[in-house]
Amino acid sequence: MKIWLGLLYGILVALLMIMGTWWVYYLTSETKARTESELQKLTNDRLHAAFLIQTEPQVRAEPERWLAEPFPDLIFVRGPEGSLNAQVDPEVKAAILERDRHTRRMFLSEGLFFILLLIAGTFILIHAWRSEVSYKQARELFMTAATHEFKTPLASLRLYAETLARRELKDSDRIRIQDRMIEDVIRLEDLVNDILSVSAADMFASGHGGVLDLEEECRLVLDDLAAFAAENRAVMNLEAESGTNIRGHRLPLALVLRNLLVNAVQHSPRPVNVTVKVIPGKDRHRVVVMDDGPGIPRRLQDRVFECFYTGRLDGRFSGTGLGLYLVRRNMEMLGGEVELTSEPDQGAVFTLSFPARQAD
């Protein structure tokens, strides 16, 4: 159906462009014909006046009296020997030619504007259609990947539940299976939270938000993760300078910082040291998140930002594959950028760059 609508729209645009071009050609041709007709009339009036001057003595004696009213666009000039000549007023002729040029330019500019408007509208519709197609494809891909990610822990939970139903199962095996089930439930919970975060990011995709202090926002996130850090034997340090204001929404920024910090703790051996630095700049402020974990190989540094990519870097924790994807997506929404630098066994450094804003 959409193909037929697109074809119909293309035919309509082509017809409108042809009609607009023909209409401009017709109007300019009519203007040219009218100008030539007016100039020809002036020539005929001049010849008629010259004939009257030659044949009528009273007209020759007082041409302005007898010819000014019937021939208002002519002037009468006497020669050195007393001869009288009828001429077209140069100002009248110049006015006719100027009006002709002005009218043609007006028709051409209006026609060109009409055609450009059609072309611009066509490009806008094509861009909107492509954006819609890309959005639908991305949504279908996201839902397919999300469904797959849900199936894996659900299948494990079903298998574990069936195994627990066996009476001959040892207590040690039962405890081990229960621990695995808890891990799968936690993974499902994390996956649901991350998917909800994707929806939350869509809510803040428009609008500029308010002025945020990066130092204050980092401190709030670190305070919120204090219990998580203590449970995982992690030390989170903040090194911040004042005067780091940006414009944006608080929730996307908090999601970025939280995901980076949680990701650093989960992928690092215990004990964990994570440092957050807030560095002011003239045009852009930076937030640097550094850890002392195993690092990320260069071949994976671009892929870790892909949706649902879960590379097992240390064999301990695979995650949902949405954490760093949300980091990049929310940074783009905030008008910022995220950069990763890492070497094996030397930790990872994530640098967040934000456009600087002055406080209101």
Rank of each mutant, 00 (worst) to 15 (best):
M1S: 12
G6T: 13
V13K: 06
L15A: 11
M17G: 07
Y26S: 03
S29C: 10
T35C: 14
Q40Y: 15
N44T: 09
D45T: 11
H48V: 10
A49Q: 02
E56P: 05
E56S: 12
Q58T: 05
E64Q: 15
E64N: 12
P72A: 09
I75R: 08
R78N: 08
G79I: 08
G79V: 10
P80I: 11
G82W: 03
L84G: 14
L84I: 14
A86R: 03
Q87A: 13
P90E: 13
V92D: 03
A95K: 09
L97Y: 04
E98A: 14
E98K: 11
T103M: 03
R105H: 07
G111P: 10
L116E: 11
L117P: 00
G121F: 08
I124K: 08
L125S: 13
R139Y: 03
E140V: 12
A145C: 07
A161V: 10
T163Q: 08
R167F: 15
L169T: 04
V185Q: 01
L188T: 04
L191K: 01
V192C: 02
N193D: 11
S197Y: 00
A201F: 13
G207T: 05
E215G: 09
E217D: 10
R219M: 06
L220E: 09
D224Q: 03
A227R: 09
A230P: 10
L238I: 13
E239Q: 14
G243L: 14
I246P: 02
G248A: 03
L253A: 03
L255R: 07
L257E: 01
N259L: 02
N259I: 06
L260T: 00
V262N: 00
V262S: 02
R270E: 10
R270G: 02
V272C: 14
V278M: 06
G281Q: 11
H285G: 00
R286G: 03
V288Y: 01
D291E: 05
D291W: 02
G293T: 00
G295S: 15
Q301W: 03
F305E: 06
F305C: 07
G315Q: 07
F317L: 15
S318G: 12
T320M: 01
L324H: 02
L326H: 00
R329G: 08
R329N: 06
G335L: 11
E337P: 01
T341A: 04
T341C: 03
S342G: 15
E343A: 06
E343K: 10
G347V: 13
T351E: 01
S353G: 10
Q358L: 09
